[in-house]
């Protein structure tokens, strides 16, 4: 039954992607050919670059998609197969550097929700292929492996992941209540994106608390909000991801179907509960990982005395002791 559901959801996602693809099949052109060109004006006139950011070459767009795929693959491999927290931190830093600071936080799957919504609703709207790919790929991965995108790939998540210092446990009720906020935010974002073109507003992008850091500029109040999120994030693990990220809501729906995500199994682990303590996101309930909350940080594996970095370190220590 879950297998059938999974297949169904993948088909639905692919169909939606195809629909979005059809919706974007508008030839994009700028009618600047009719305007006086640099050559016709003469006199050493140079057309100033007025557009920022400049459109990227298509192969760079393809590179972004390939890198996103590769990063998600790496995230799954590192967490599920290798169980190495350190490697995942490395991946987070790399993603933060590329998708965050180099690509200035755009395009990201979180914001692409709005592009896809608009593309499906407005036939005149042209959506880039990259936006479609970036929106659907993490969801498809989530159907099989859980929220691999959240751990080590998403630059917003990576930023918060790196600032977690001393996470406090959020009471379960409060955690659940705040978790509903992201669906409210998702609904609002869709509503505002569905408005007619002139009054349309991309809420998620406008109120993205971290994109200002990536670009070294932004509305002061958003920068301040981002700062508050980061300082709060030292003590409450990834507050934006857990309580506000609308894409996180979609991912958690998809990851309910996942069977190969992060699992804590009694045959490999001890049922000792150290992982529950190690998880800053409250994603381990009764010693079992909750896929829809798990953010792929691999802290549980790192803290496992049976099969994790702790155990490997112990083995190494015993080895040294034995050699002497």
């Amino acid at each position: 039954m879950p297998r059938a559901l999974r297949a169904l959801s993948v088909v639905v996602l692919l169909l939606a992607a195809a629909a979005a693809l059809c919706a974007q099949a508008i030839e994009y052109s700028r009618p600047v050919e009719t305007a006086p060109q640099q050559e016709t004006i003469g006199g050493g006139y140079k057309t100033p670059a007025v557009q920022k950011p400049l459109p990227r070459g298509w192969w760079l767009d393809i590179l972004d998609v390939v890198l996103l795929c590769a990063a998600m693959g790496a995230s799954v491999w590192i967490v599920i197969k290798r169980r190495k927290r350190r490697w995942l931190v490395g991946l987070s830093i790399a993603s933060l550097a590329y998708f965050g600071f180099y690509r200035e936080g755009c395009i990201c799957p979180i914001g692409s929700i709005q592009n896809v919504v608009v593309a499906l609703a407005d036939p005149k709207y042209s959506i880039p292929m990259v936006a479609i790919a970036v929106f659907f790929m993490p969801l498809v991965v989530a159907v099989f492996f859980g929220r691999a995108f959240c751990g080590g790939v998403c630059p917003l998540g990576a930023m918060q992941e790196l600032v977690v210092i001393k996470p406090l446990r959020v009471p379960k009720r409060l955690d659940q209540g705040l978790g509903l906020l992201k669906y409210v935010y998702l609904a609002l974002a869709i509503l505002f994106a569905l408005k007619p073109a002139l009054t349309r507003d991309f809420l998620i992008c406008r109120f993205d608390p971290f994109v200002g850091f990536f670009r070294f500029t932004g509305a002061p109040y958003m920068l301040a909000t981002g700062g508050v999120f980061l300082i709060g994030g030292m003590f409450i693990g990834r507050p934006y991801c857990r309580y506000l990220c609308p894409y996180g809501g979609l991912l958690s729906w998809c990851s309910r179907l996942a069977r190969k995500g992060v699992t804590i199994t009694p045959d490999k682990e001890l049922d000792c509960g150290l992982c529950t303590e190690a998880c800053p996101y409250g994603a381990i309930d009764q010693m079992r990982a909750v896929g829809r909350k798990c953010l792929y940080c691999a802290r549980c594996y790192a803290s496992c005395p049976c099969d994790g970095e702790l155990a490997q370190a112990k083995k190494a220590l015993v080895g040294i002791g034995g050699a002497q």
């Binding site: 210092i165 001393k166 406090l168 446990r169 009471p171 379960k172 509960g273 150290l274 303590e277």
Partner: peptide, 20 residues
Amino acid sequence: LIARSAPKAVEMSRIAAPIS
């Protein structure tokens, strides 16, 4: 610093009294 100042004994006491 936190990793150093929190040896296993402290971890255990945290287990014993879940904050939830």
